[in-house]
């Protein structure tokens, strides 16, 4: 375990070293790729600026709100659709059709309808994150053991009690997987919305750094989005593990 950690750190150090050496040797112009030390310097400057923290807060705001709305809607609709077979059959084709529509297709629409503020960004985030959660919840509901459901029925549990005691516990691991995937997708769409639409946040700051030729700052901000992404992935996995500690089956990633 300790060996793995050391190797991983060595890998990161090597990565930084390569980033430092390539522009220094002139293999790539430092106008395109500044040395790692300069990026770190720019990162330091960014951290000292209030505008950076405002941008970070805006991004996180959009991410949290979007994920929350998508989660509530996805879980509620998923359980409802999943619990009523007729509803499941009626909505199947619509879900199959709407899900693969790329959320970026909505960009022009939200710009003309909602402008370039938080709402536009939210629509993109919610649209992208919602399907991830809904689809996983539906998988989860489909996974319900018929014997468990029949047992519950035989003991006279009504539909709402069955949702609480049979459906929900079975679907929970899938819900968690959906949330983890949605969390990552939500960040992507959040930053995309900022970058393309100009809704305030880290994405806009990257766009500004690019157009003003502040290359090192641009890289520093990209590093921040990457670290944010890592934090979200690690956090989501930790939450998933914690929530499923009681669950005997640790589901494999392949099922995702």
């Amino acid at each position: 375990m300790r060996g793995r950690l050391a190797l991983g750190l060595a890998g990161l150090a090597g990565f930084l070293l390569i980033l430092e050496v390539i522009p220094r040797l002139g293999l790539v112009s430092s106008r395109y790729l500044p040395p790692a030390t300069e990026i770190v310097g720019a990162l330091g400057r960014e951290l000292a600026e209030t505008a950076f923290w405002t941008a970070l807060r805006d991004t996180l705001n959009g991410w949290v709100l979007g994920l929350l709305i998508a989660a509530v809607a996805g879980i509620a609709l998923g359980l409802l659709i999943g619990a009523v077979p007729l509803l499941r059959e009626l909505t199947a084709s619509t879900i199959e059709f709407l899900r693969p529509i790329p959320s970026v297709a909505l960009i022009p629409l939200v710009v003309v309808l909602l402008g370039t503020g938080l709402e536009s960004k939210l629509v993109l985030v919610v649209y992208a994150a919602f399907w991830q959660i809904l689809v996983q919840v539906l998988y989860g509901v489909r996974d319900v053991d018929p014997v468990a459901d029949e047992t519950a029925r035989a003991y006279g549990l009504d539909r709402s009690a069955r949702i609480v005691h049979v459906l929900w516990p079975t679907a929970l691991p899938f819900v968690m997987t959906g949330l983890r995937l949605a969390a990552a997708v939500a960040l992507i769409l959040c930053v995309t919305g900022e970058l393309v639409i100009g809704a305030p946040g880290l994405g806009t700051r990257i766009a500004i750094a690019q157009t003003s030729g502040a290359v090192a700052d641009m890289y520093a901000l990209i590093v921040v989005t990457g670290l944010l992404g890592v934090a979200i992935n690690v956090g989501a996995r930790a939450v998933e593990r914690r929530a499923l500690r009681w669950h005997q089956s640790v589901r494999s990633e392949a099922a995702v």
Binding site: G11, I206, T225
Partner: peptide, 29 residues
């Protein structure tokens, strides 16, 4: 296994970068 342990953190980081922010970077190159 050893190569994997070495590069995995870097790969996890690169994957976590929201891909659209790479557009301005790659435009530079």
């Amino acid at each position: 296994p050893r190569v994997r342990a070495t590069v995995e953190p870097v790969l996890e980081f690169l994957r976590a970068i929201p891909p659209p922010v790479l557009v301005p970077v790659i435009m530079l190159f």
